[in-house]
Simulated scan of single mutants.
Amino acid sequence: MKTILIVEDEETISRVLAVYLKHAGYEVVQAFDGSEGLRSFTELQPDLVLLDVMLPAMDGWEVLKEIREVNSCPVIMLTALGDIDYKLKGLNQGADDYIPKPFIGEEVVARVNAVLRRSTHVLDTESTKQFGSLKINMDSHVVTVNGEKVILTPKDLSLLMFLAERPNRTFTREDLIENVWGMDYDGSDRAVDLSVKRIRQALLDWSSTQGEIRTLRGLGYQFSVYEK
């Protein structure tokens, strides 16, 4: 059972949220000011945080900043402030979603479900690697993002699978040619650059928020996953 931490100083709102989330099958923990919320987060390591912006002791922006320094746990901001600047501030500081008050309980549950589905937490099974919304079945060679199949050439698929099996490790072009194209390859190393470019284009819906194939100047390429 996944645990949701609600950090909200208005007890009525917190209680209503807790009822809806418990009904949806989540375990719920409540905190009523920023400092208490941060302590609860550190102790419990919840699966998602519903975080109000206007909190006593420590406001939501400060709590979000502290969380993001150590963890990529999904955070949804709650606030009565409807200005677009506040929404952008939250998203730019690392929030995963933003729900203005007043809100409907069912909407909050739906947003929680959606954010958890695209969480960057990595799930490995015997044949499948999952990085947030990106799934790579290593047996069937099927790649999906948000449930939609991604079409790749055989060589691009081989390159993606090689890198995804070794996240956050850096490989030179020569390494990739040797391991993906083979030692007998006699073409240009530009093939690696072009393959990476095509993969990035195919994974745009994933790479914008959850990870990327990074170019490390002078070093090579890395399948980089945003850490929890």
Rank of each mutant, 00 (worst) to 15 (best):
R200M: 03
Y86W: 02
K22I: 10
G90H: 01
H141E: 07
P102W: 04
S14N: 06
Q130P: 06
F131T: 02
Q93P: 13
R117Y: 07
A202T: 04
M138P: 01
S188T: 15
L81S: 10
V145R: 00
G218E: 11
I67T: 08
S195W: 06
L152M: 07
R117L: 10
D184A: 12
R169K: 14
L38E: 08
G60K: 03
K228H: 13
S40F: 06
I151F: 15
D139G: 02
R217H: 15
P154E: 01
G187T: 13
G211Y: 01
E10Y: 09
D52R: 04
M54G: 07
V196M: 04
M138I: 04
F171V: 12
V122N: 07
N71H: 15
R169D: 15
D96H: 14
G90Y: 00
L123Q: 07
F223R: 00
V29C: 02
L91H: 05
R214I: 11
A80P: 14
V225W: 03
E174V: 15
N146D: 02
K149N: 13
L44V: 07
V180R: 02
Q222R: 13
V145I: 03
I199L: 01
Q30K: 11
D85E: 14
R200Y: 00
P167W: 10
T79W: 05
S140M: 07
D96E: 13
